[in-house]
Nucleic acid binder design. Structure first.
Length: 468
DNA sequence: TCTGGGGTCCTAGGACCC
DNA sequence: TCTGGGGTCCTAGGACCC
């Protein structure tokens, strides 16, 4: 634990839903659920309006549909849009300190002590956090965040959780235990359903209860590493550093099918497709790996993995696929599979093949698809069902009607609302699904024309004029 | 129409080596 | 000639996080 409250944690509020409401004016103030929109989808983020009806992250989308009123928007994720907004926020954080550790698209830690000339008194960091929140809202078109500041990552994260949404909590040095001990143990990172259940069985409900347990008791209950971790956290002992560049350990792709699959030819093609994605991402990040893992989820939700370690690292899709296909015959397909996954771990920096064979390009396969930003989607964004041309929430562009987004589709029709972040609520038109004037669009820009923001990577996509 | 997708870390047993 | 001890690698599974 540090002497000063110099660790800041930022958590953007209902982030995916907030970006949707920014970009889709007709959804502002209304319940929005972002996640898988297929029969087996789950909720990634529910707006606060949707949470009022009981929609929650990780709930099945079917359950959320039952809970939310008609008119609730159920949208697939738009990773590129979230990524662009996240980049703007992370750039603002890096103005505070070079030590910024993103935990996901919508969450990051900042080590303020590594920044230049911050006043680290309680009043100083409070003012800093307030100004940060203002700048984030201004730069993102109104996305808000909750901020916690404390003497450790633990206390900063606890703080950001205390007043959501749009919160600001500084835990003054010395006040850690007073803040921590009344909270339920489940607020500690690392206490999930299984650990919580075991703790409840021995009478532990609050962090104070946890602090009363001995180290040997906790180790017996949760294992060596986890038990001693809990013992320390209950005492607010946390010296984890803010690490700006975490090394990637594995790359994987997986897919849950709309219906269970049994056909080996179809399963083989799925493996090929996933291996292609994994290989492409490995090469894009200049990694290769030795261990190929196949993940299988059966019709009854039992999950098994089979892996094989190669003598040499690979980033070649065909080799990854061929190993994975062999592993599938090992795992078996009886009864049908609801999910397949392909992964590569044991990564090393790209150093494969014959170094002296000039011009040899290890891992280039026949397909020459380019890397799309969406393909880096190593985040909690549900991919739209493969093969569907239109999906709810999707950005589209009509040659006569302009930019808009897909509200619904079916029966050869697609319903589009023509609006953008800088327009008022727009009008709805139902078009033929094969309307030649309609095409997939880019994420709209939420900033007025001419306005720029520090740190954003401009890839020359949509301009404000296009959005109207 | 139960239960996503992309990750990290830990544990435990067996093989193998010195 | 009755039984070592430590270390690393590999495989599989589980808990957890966002």
């Amino acid at each position: 634990m540090r002497r000063e409250a110099s660790v800041l944690h930022l958590d953007l509020d209902a982030f995916f839903a907030a970006v949707e409401q920014r970009d889709k004016p007709s959804l502002r103030g209304r319940p929005v659920v972002v996640g898988g929109v297929g029969g087996r989808g789950v909720v990634a983020t529910a707006s606060y309006e949707a949470r009022a009806f009981g929609a929650r992250s990780a709930m099945s989308t079917a359950e959320a549909r039952r809970r939310c009123p008609p008119g609730t928007a159920f949208l697939g994720g738009r990773f590129a849009a979230y990524r662009r907004t996240s980049d703007v926020v992370m750039a603002l954080l890096r103005e505070l300190s070079p030590l910024v550790e993103p935990a996901s698209l919508d969450e990051a830690y900042v080590d303020l002590a590594a920044g230049q000339g911050h006043d680290l008194s309680v009043d100083g960091v409070t003012a800093l956090a307030r100004s940060l929140k203002e700048r984030i809202a201004a730069a993102t078109g109104g996305v808000t965040g909750s901020v916690g500041v404390g003497t450790s990552k633990l206390m900063a994260k606890i703080g950001s959780d205390l007043q959501k949404p749009d919160g600001l909590v500084v835990v003054p040095p010395g006040e850690e235990l007073a803040v921590l001990h009344p909270l339920p143990v489940t607020r500690l990172g690392g206490v999930g359903p299984a650990t919580a259940e075991r703790l409840h069985q021995v009478g532990v409900r609050t962090v104070a209860d946890l602090a009363a347990k001995s180290l040997p008791d906790l180790v017996a209950l949760a294992g060596r590493a986890h038990g001693s971790g809990l013992y320390a956290l209950a005492r607010a002992e946390d010296d984890r550093a803010v690490v700006p560049d975490r090394e990637v350990k594995s790359v994987s792709a997986e897919e849950t099918f709309e219906r269970d699959l049994t056909d080996l030819v179809v399963l083989g093609r799925e493996i090929d497709a996933m291996a292609t994605r994994v290989g492409r991402r490995l090469r894009a990040s200049a990694y290769s790996g030795r261990t190929v893992t196949l993940k299988v989820r059966r019709y009854d939700f039992t999950t098994v993995t089979r892996s094989l370690t190669l003598p040499q690292p690979t980033d070649d899709a065909r080799q990854i696929a061929s190993v994975a296909r062999r592993l599938l015959t090992q795992a078996g397909t009886e009864g049908g599979l609801r999910l397949l996954g392909v992964g590569v771990s044991g990564l090393s920096v790209y150093a494969q093949g014959d170094l002296f064979a000039a011009g040899s390009e290890p891992g280039t396969e026949a397909t020459t698809e380019e890397d799309t930003p969406a393909d880096e989607a190593a985040q909690a964004v549900p991919a739209p069902a493969a093969g569907a041309r239109w999906w709810p929430g999707q950005d589209v562009r009509h040659e006569d009607l302009g930019a808009g987004w897909v509200w619904g589709r079916g029966l050869g029709r697609v319903t589009v609302r023509f609006e953008g972040p800088l327009t008022g609520p727009g009008s709805v038109r139902t078009l033929a699904a094969d309307d030649p004037l309609l095409s997939p669009g880019d994420p709209p820009d939420w900033r007025p024309a001419g306005e720029t923001t520090t740190g954003e990577t401009t890839t020359g996509e949509t301009t404000a004029e296009e959005v109207r």
